[in-house]
Design a protein around this nucleic acid. Structure first.
Lengths: 199, 199
DNA sequence: TCCATAACTGACCAATCAGTCATTTTTCAA
DNA sequence: TTGAAAAATGACTGATTGGTCAGTTATGGA
């Protein structure tokens, strides 16, 4: 019988410990020793699975990005009517963010990596460019098909896309910076619904 | 003749050097030695004006916040019609952000301090709470006076305030994360104008 | 049971850097 | 011109920590 491959399991355990420690202490302050302790292993073991602290941070970033990527794929490649896909996308992003509320301080720090860390930069850049262009294309064809009205945006699908993105990302930012400022589940859904009434 | 007070001038020079170095290298990586070199002084001298690296960061944060505070005061205490004040506020924030584009990586890092640094936390919290409540009050009274229509928000001034804030902060976030994503001066102004047509 | 090897450990090293302070340089009122 | 105080210097220290690796332990097929 082959030995059970502990590698993937260990990697995941380390990643979860890292999420917890990095969130609690901040990326710069948190020590690899602390991550190891939280994972119930020794520091050296981490380096059997991740070659550096940076690689651990990047793995975490990719992992947290996954749900966003999935939601974006569903938005852009779905077969449902455009309005419905946009609404579902907004709702799933808002709910996903509300669910990871304990990780918000970490997520804010990961955002701040974008201009400096190449991996983070590429992730964000790729995501937002696809998002903007995909959404604009979606609005354009839905507008031409008469499914939505772009009259509030002078018929400009690009403007509609930027407006939607600003509204949604803005909601997330407000929640990230100060949880007491808005209730994502209530205010987020209200604002999203209000926006959708424009088109 | 009293000696010219070099203190305020030196403090400002150090702050400007810090802005430059922190933006280029990141808060965690930048060394006090580098800030000193950029200011054309020695490291020890910095400590005659700022007691610690953290205090320097906090001074920078307060300084960068000042224009926002001023714009907010003009929004909340102005005597012009509500719609005009909201528009002017949005425009001035967007333009101010576009003007400090070289500092965007630093600003993103300062945002990420909010959950951990008490000074940053208080600044952001205070600002956004005043912003939200002041704007909601503004919309409420302007709605009652018939200056604006809140029908797009079910007559709810709070919802209108959250929607406006999300739109505006979202624009700034998109620009911060990836300058290539939107053109603040053009897309920002368009989106702002589009939002204002709702009320 | 044996042992090859996978998995893990933690003491250690090398590098880093915020902050200090004894000393030097500059300033200017007398 | 002088000297006392203000301003500035930069070598140094103490503490920290990412990453390494020689040695130890656990596993399971033969």
């Amino acid at each position: 019988m082959p030995r059970p491959n502990v590698s993937e399991k260990r990697k995941l355990e380390i990643l979860q410990a890292a999420a917890q420690v990095f969130t609690g202490q901040g990326l710069a302050v948190a020590r690899m020793e602390d991550v190891a302790a939280a994972a119930g292993i020794s520091k050296g073991t981490i380096y059997l699975y991740y070659p550096s602290k940076d690689s651990l941070i990047e793995a975490l970033l990719r992992r947290l990005f996954q749900p966003l990527d999935d939601a974006l794929a569903a938005l852009l490649d779905g077969i449902d009517p455009a309005r419905q896909r946009v609404q579902r996308y907004g709702e799933s992003v808002i709910l996903a963010f509300a669910e990871v509320a304990p990780l918000h301080p970490l997520i804010l720090e990961l955002f701040a990596l974008a201009p400096r860390n190449p991996v983070a930069g590429e992730l964000f850049k790729g995501y937002f460019i696809s998002y903007r262009d995909g959404l604009a294309g979606l609005f354009r064809s839905a507008g031409e098909a008469g499914e939505v009205s772009l009259v509030a945006f002078d018929g400009d699908a690009y403007r509609a896309a930027v407006s939607f993105m600003a509204m949604l990302e803005g909601l997330l930012l407000l929640a990230l910076i100060n949880p007491a400022l808005i209730d994502l589940r209530r205010d987020g859904m209200d604002t999203l619904a209000g926006w959708l009434r424009q088109i």
